[in-house]
Design a protein around this nucleic acid. Structure first.
Lengths: 354, 354
DNA sequence: TTGTAGGCGTTATCAT
DNA sequence: ATGATAACGCCTACAA
């Protein structure tokens, strides 16, 4: 560690100049085969590895991608398994492409004069790109990031910029699948527990619900829509409101699995049965869903795939950043979702996937 | 980004030398106040930030901590929310201390000659320390890390080295709390669904169970112990085995919440009631536990706190690494756990914490 | 095919 | 209190 070997040492030991060592190790063609072999062998033997810092300084590429994953008090996204599963996809894909991930933790990089700034933190570490999760698009600092020349990608928030794009699951399709499934089970009085309207998924799932209802010839009754924050407790209280109606719904499409768990809790607490009295379908398919009792039907997001999609979009931006041709500003990518029928809706007790 | 300002520019613009700028920005005392003010103001204005790479090169400190979080096929830890919650604690504490986190993703850092090596990856990025999660202590590459001079800390795996230590929850205390609680509910025929014996938590929770049973004067019946892998399915099959016994247990202490969920599923599938016919208590207190039906009594690990504990141990190692005095090789830290009584054991339906 | 040397952005050690 | 200047480890023209 403190005394790990340098290229200079390696050169001395193999009896060539540092330039030759560099060329040999970096696969340049103009090195005699046996020279290269000798150097490579010695490098392995001595466990040599170039210092990223030095290399970054001269090549201006760090092979590191910055990750902003908000986990603060105001963004308790950590409670939401979603982002972590996405992170795995990102890690897999970016790792395969030779990148490591810098998880920003310190609010004050370097010497923290000046204001907090995402862009500055990226510049400080000279990351080649950045991934944004769990922060809002109208944060001025996020906007600044969008205006910069740094390749960025965000997941689940509409974020566009010169070299930025975003990915998300197809929330409209999901809402459509959910409503159609409930209808096929014979429900007509369908409620929705929506997510926060400040979030894209919250908005889109509600809009999708409304559209699907109307497209199916059912009327969209505003009284059958309540709002939550994606978490358990809000699912409980939301469902209680719905059950207190003069004519409660017979089915409910919930914008997240965690809220759906809360809704189920409320239904059971009222002595009602699932799906007999009220059918419930969630959104996400987090691990909880399959373990619940009854197990939860839901709209499945391919979280790891979403991460890989984000990674690929970012890789494209990073590769293109050398070229000057202004290819069309990468459109955002939508990932299809699937319906998973379990016990909480009319499905027989076996698990079917459509 | 590609053209972010350098210290040289900043020096030119403020009419001083780079040395003065460096001293001013780094808070050295020997700078005239108005000179410093002028420089700092200009730095803010121009959104200057020093390049970590250059600084690391000369100071030999990166202010970055490496994180190994195994998420491969053989280590599907990602399914286990545990590590991610721990990660949050680490991030919080280390971030507060001015460190960012490097999440290793690429298997081949720099130019990948030679074998895969944790140590090499750390050296490559010149991290000041490393955190190990989800990898096994007898991996030779992990052992090499332990023999190196790099400060390390691992969570939940017994890992010791010159500058390394590890942290975990008090599994013995947990087992003890669980068994005592079940006894107080009147159970004497208590089973255990154990975790994998290759893992420290798996071993310790089993050993703790055995010890607690014997200390309570109950006999430890090997037939009442089955083994799982911490995940849901193994909880189902483990419980099925137990229910198939001539004399099934009336209570079961399960080594993880996910397996406990599986056990509950098996019990309910057999038409038995919880806790009436069989009481269930888990370990971890992941989010699932409170949302389950019935809600799951469990031994709560303070996951975020565990992360902070790990971070603090690492900080201590990193700070001490300058001093040459061989202070005692930091003992591993144990974090207390707590009993959370919910519906799956004899508690009344309210939630009590001890 | 190989060696030499300049420079990447900073800090730190000298002078002044 | 400030200015030069030499590292830090590496890559990459340019020479040889």
């Amino acid at each position: 560690m403190k005394n790990s070997i340098t290229i200079r040492e390696l050169a001395r030991l193999s009896g060539v100049s540092v330039g030759t060592v560099s060329r040999a190790l970096n696969g340049y063609p103009d090195v005699r085969q046996d020279t290269r072999d000798r150097i490579v062998r010695l490098a392995e033997e001595l466990d040599y590895t170039p210092q990223a810092a030095a290399r970054t300084l001269v090549t201006r590429r760090s092979h590191v991608v910055g990750i902003f994953l908000e986990t603060g008090k105001n963004h308790p996204d950590i409670q939401h398994p979603f982002f972590h599963e996405v992170l795995v996809g990102i890690k897999t894909r970016l790792g395969a492409a030779g990148y490591d991930l810098l998880l920003f933790a310190s609010e004050e990089p370097g010497n923290g004069y000046g204001t907090h700034s995402y862009l500055k933190r990226c510049n400080h570490h000279h990351v080649d790109g950045a991934v944004l999760m769990g922060l809002s698009a109208d944060d001025p600092e996020v906007e600044r990031l969008g205006r910069s020349s740094l390749p960025c990608v965000s997941v689940d928030v509409e974020f566009e910029g010169l070299h930025s794009t975003w990915v998300s699951s197809d929330n409209f399709q999901g809402a459509d699948l959910a409503v159609k499934h409930l209808m096929e089970c014979g429900h007509t009085r369908i409620a929705h527990i929506a997510g926060p309207l400040e979030t894209t998924p919250g908005r889109e799932r509600l809009a999708g619900f409304r559209r699907a209802m109307q497209a199916s010839g059912l009327d969209y009754d505003e009284n059958l829509v309540v709002y939550g924050d994606f978490y358990f407790e809000s699912g409980v209280s939301g469902m209680e409101k719905l059950l207190a109606l003069d004519a409660p719904p017979t089915a409910v499409f919930v914008a997240s699995d965690m809220m759906a768990m809360g809704a189920m809790r409320a239904i059971q607490a009222n002595g009602l049965s699932i799906p007999g009295d009220v059918a419930v379908i969630g959104f996400d398919d987090i691990a909880i869903a399959g373990m619940a009792h009854p197990s939860l039907s839901t709209i499945r997001q391919e979280k790891a795939q979403l991460g890989e999609l984000a990674a690929e979009a970012l890789l494209r931006q990073m590769d293109a950043n050398g070229d000057e041709d202004g290819d069309d500003p990468a459109a955002n990518q939508l990932l299809p979702v699937t319906l998973v029928v379990r016990e909480s809706t009319c499905g027989d007790r076996t698990e079917a996937v459509t």
